[in-house]
Design a protein around this nucleic acid. Structure first.
Length: 491
RNA sequence: GUCUCCUUCGUCUAGUGGUUAGGACAACGGGUUUUCAUCCCGUCAACAGGGGUUCGACUCCCCUAGGAGAUGCCA
């Protein structure tokens, strides 16, 4: 039987990095085993539904370059792929369970349920639903329903025995039936199914072979198995993936930093880096390999190398991967990826002029290895495309150097500038070295005030290339300005 | 409270009875260098604890501790 797996997000919020990891593992497993990857939209919660979240699902996977074989936009023979369009199916099968006595109507109001929970909390425990409606005679229940009394359908969990299943990663998971959430709701009073019902029905009819989802679903595994049994269906193979946590060991959330894919994208992370890093959260290939492209993973991914324990998300390591992938980009490619981040800072036009484009392309070699994220580029390029940031007078002073000395350095440098733009970097370096000897100081010391004058910062890309990119006119003006500041400081 | 799952360096992990417990990120130190960064070299650093089983346990079993998750007409 060929593999069919699915990622089934709920369009209620932005795609979370943990969800993306789950999607990726499903996708890679499908690719590596020659199976199908299905996207199913679980939009059964009408209260929390958000159309922007649906668009975010598409944007996220488009950006990552992940395509589903079946699902929205792609079509397929097992649709519809929106659960909201499959409600007839759910109702029909929920009815079947009622008819066979494996489920029942429950008329408990939200108020009663809330009261019940409060009472349970008082007693210091949450036992779940008290099965208040479990024994209403079917005829009576039907009559009340016909009369229009609001109701839900609940699964009649056996009071005795236990239910278990085999998990590909964890092994056997077994739970006493009495410990399963007492009689969970299958069909809500608004006629929509809950996750449990829709999930089981869809996975069955979509012929899903492997259910790969986060470990937070383990406790409801037996419940789902009970559902499969009630319908007389075969259960798919389960594989509960380890969860992704923040550095405090808690479920990764907002307070740990970025969690939604769109934030990482906006923060200048490359899809290559995200895919590589996230794939190594709970999965490994061997004892040393770190680098994996999407297509590597499409071939290499295997369930056997999954880890059981939850993984802590390490922003530093993601950043390291990002730097690697940035350095791997060609100049033209990196320039293209940088554009949105430069536009955001108004550093160049949209579209950029031919001159801007050329300058940007020429800038790439000197900033590329200084980038941890695409968003860092604006800071490094501002002095080229815009003005040099303001700086304090003392920034112009090399270590243990007075303003008068620094001014002397700058005056000497001014004499070199007329020929600067006609020489090679090597030629200029030779000149500056000669000057530093003449002045009896290190090359770094005479370059320091020039660096600050031209770039506005003590830290910058290589100076000679930078000066060339800034251009003659602006460079000379900036040197004049710095000289002015120094002579004022020297008194 | 109850149930379920998990436990190797700070972090991600390799390891399936006999290893100097390996790699990567981070940190720290050094080298290259016009600053920063890149790059190179090196250092620090782990089998949660206790019982078994065994000639021998990180590896198998049990207990304890710790952590996480579930306990919704959310998924």
């Amino acid at each position: 039987m060929s593999v069919r797996v699915r990622y089934a997000p709920s369009p209620t919020g932005l795609q979370h990095i943990g969800g993306v990891r789950t999607a990726l593992f499903n996708y890679f497993f499908a690719r590596a085993s020659g199976g199908k990857f299905i996207l199913r939209i679980e939009d059964t919660d009408r209260e929390r539904y958000d159309p922007r979240a649906l668009q975010d699902i598409y944007d996220t996977f488009d950006w990552l370059g992940i395509q589903w074989d079946e699902g929205p936009r792609a079509g397929g023979n097992y649709g519809p792929y929106f659960q909201s369009e499959r409600t007839d199916l759910y109702r029909e099968y929920a009815q079947k369970l009622v008819a066979s006595g494996q489920a029942y109507y429950c008329f408990c109001s939200a108020g009663r349920l809330e009261q019940m929970r409060e009472q349970q909390a008082l007693e210091g425990a949450g036992q779940g639903y008290d099965r208040h409606c479990r024994n209403i005679p079917p005829v009576e229940a039907l009559a009340r329903k016909e009369k229009g009394e609001p109701c839900v359908i609940r699964l009649r969990i056996p009071l005795e025995g236990s239910t278990g299943f085999h998990d590909r990663l964890i092994g056997t998971i077994e739970r006493a039936n009495k410990d399963i959430n007492p009689d969970p709701v299958l069909l809500k009073s608004d006629g929509f199914p809950t996750y449990h019902l829709a999930n089981v029905i869809d996975d069955h009819f979509m012929e899903i072979t492997h259910i790969m989802r986060a470990q937070e679903w383990i406790p409801s595994g037996p419940l789902h198995v009970l559902l499969y049994q009630a319908f007389g269906w075969e259960t798919p193979e389960y594989c509960h993936l380890p969860m992704v946590m923040g550095d405090d060991g808690q479920k990764l959330s907002k307070r740990h930093g970025s969690t939604s894919l769109i934030e990482f994208r906006g923060g200048g992370y490359l899809p290559e880096a995200i895919i590589n890093y996230v794939s190594l959260l709970g999965w490994s290939y061997d004892d040393s390999r770190q680098m994996f492209s999407r297509s590597d993973l499409e071939q290499l991914f295997t369930l056997d190398k999954l880890n059981k324990a939850a993984a802590v998300f390490d922003y530093k390591k993601l950043e390291w991967f990002n730097g690697i992938y940035i350095r791997e980009c060609s100049e033209a490619d990196l320039a293209r990826r940088l554009l949105p981040f430069l536009w955001e800072e108004n550093l160049l036009g949209n579209p950029p002029s031919a001159r801007e484009e050329k300058t940007l392309l020429d800038s790439i070699p000197i900033i590329r290895e200084r980038l941890h994220s695409l968003a860092d580029a604006a800071g490094l390029l501002r002095f080229i495309f815009g003005d040099a940031p303001d700086y304090a007078a003392e920034d112009l002073l090399p270590k243990k150097t007075s303003a008068a000395e620094a001014l002397r350095f700058l005056e000497e440098i001014k004499n070199l500038m007329p020929g600067f733009f006609d020489k090679t970097d090597e030629g200029n370096e030779a000149d500056f070295r000669a000057l530093s000897e003449k002045l009896g100081t290190r090359l770094g010391n005479i370059l320091a005030p020039l660096r600050v004058a031209v770039t506005g910062s003590k830290v910058s890309p290589p100076l000679f290339e930078s000066i060339r990119l800034v251009g003659k006119e602006k460079t000379l003006a900036r040197i004049e300005k710095a000289a002015g500041i120094l002579s004022k400081a020297a008194g």
